[in-house]
């Protein structure tokens, strides 16, 4: 439960950083171990497919990830906890493990979420893991991939469908590794949540706010220790910095909204994470959650033109 001062600060500024909110051992270690196991499985598969010449099983997680990345193996979609916004195939990889599901339902996280949007909490399907390599090793083809490289300034309402404009969506940016200005922590524009929705354009294959519409002096980097969480409003302008360190920077961005409100991704599945009024509606089995995503993947495979935002790039400012 957040303090009165924290709640007031969130509503006033549009964001709130709470350092070490999560318990490292209980909330994050199981997630880290689950990803180590996933990387084991992926490496074995890539070796079997001839995409990787060895499994690098003697290397620690990060060094192994470097080798995998250098070999051209796309670990980031296989690690992600949502389907991509386009080009979904019947076999598009997605990670739906129990530790990640438990993180989505962490009592420490949901208690803070309740302080900001109330006790009827729906897990919004706009969610990602981002394990970003040092910029110096990023391939040119991934230089603007938001799962790998820096993200442009944007508002979360700007990258969702307009159906969510009235939704009390709350983003929770969870630091798994330490996040610093050097390794690409998030930066926010304080009080920008009161400014309305800004024009977004396609910039380097990302949806973002053109630089000419941003006042760079507004930017405030938000460093966090592992287990720290940055909460922000869906109109809060934010982006991430480049990873100029020698290590990976690992975060999750999770979202919640009051039950019954539009998610902004109607084709993707969410679930009831907490309900004071109707506790039996809570989804507590990770296998059911996983099946919802697998059903969505089967339904959406090879369908073209699925809209995930409202923008057309027609505005002259997008030129």
């Amino acid at each position: 439960m957040l303090t009165t001062e924290q709640i007031e600060s969130f509503h006033e500024n549009g964001f709130l950083a709470v350092d070490r909110l999560l318990d490292y051992e209980e909330d994050l270690v199981p997630v880290i171990e689950e990803y180590q196991q996933l990387l084991d499985e992926l490496c074995a598969q890539w070796v079997a497919d001839g995409r990787l010449d060895q499994s690098y099983s003697d290397l620690p997680f990060e060094k192994r990830l470097v080798e995998v990345y250098r070999a051209g193996c796309d670990y980031y979609q296989a690690f992600d906890i949502a389907l991509p916004n386009g080009n979904i195939k019947a076999d598009t990889p997605i990670h739906l493990g129990p530790a990640v599901f438990n993180l989505l339902r962490s009592p420490r996280l949901l208690s803070a979420v309740e302080s900001l949007i109330g006790g009827e909490i729906y897990s919004n399907p706009i969610q990602h893991v981002r394990i970003k390599p040092p910029s110096r090793i990023v391939d040119r083809s991934d230089a603007h991939n938001a799962l790998v490289s820096a993200t442009h300034w944007h508002q979360d309402n700007g990258v969702a469908l307009p159906e969510a404009d009235e939704t009390k969506m709350l983003t929770c940016w969870v630091a798994v590794s330490e996040a610093t200005p050097e390794n690409g922590c998030l930066q926010v524009a304080p009080k920008s949540h009161r400014e309305g929705i800004a024009l977004h354009c396609t910039i380097d294959n990302q949806i973002g706010i053109p630089d000419k519409l941003m006042v760079q002096e507004q930017a405030r980097p938000v460093p966090l220790n592992p287990g720290g969480v940055l909460f922000f409003h869906p109109m809060c302008k934010h982006g991430s910095l480049d990873n100029n360190s020698d290590a990976f920077r690992w975060s999750f961005d999770l979202r919640y909204n009051p039950i019954g409100q539009a998610t902004g991704r109607p084709h993707f599945p969410g679930f009831v994470a907490q309900s004071r009024l109707n506790p039996e509606s809570v989804l507590a089995d990770y296998r059911q959650w996983g099946q919802l995503w697998l059903d969505a993947r089967a339904r959406l495979a090879d369908i073209e033109g699925i809209k995930s935002n409202r923008w057309t790039d027609d505005d002259p400012l997008c030129a």
Partner: peptide
């Protein structure tokens, strides 16, 4: 305490932060 919440609604925040009502 009454405050304008981040979504523009009026929020009654009880002083210990434990409960709130929109």
């Amino acid at each position: 305490k009454l405050l304008l919440d981040a979504w523009g609604s009026i929020l009654l925040l009880e002083l210990d932060g434990a409960r709130q009502r929109q």
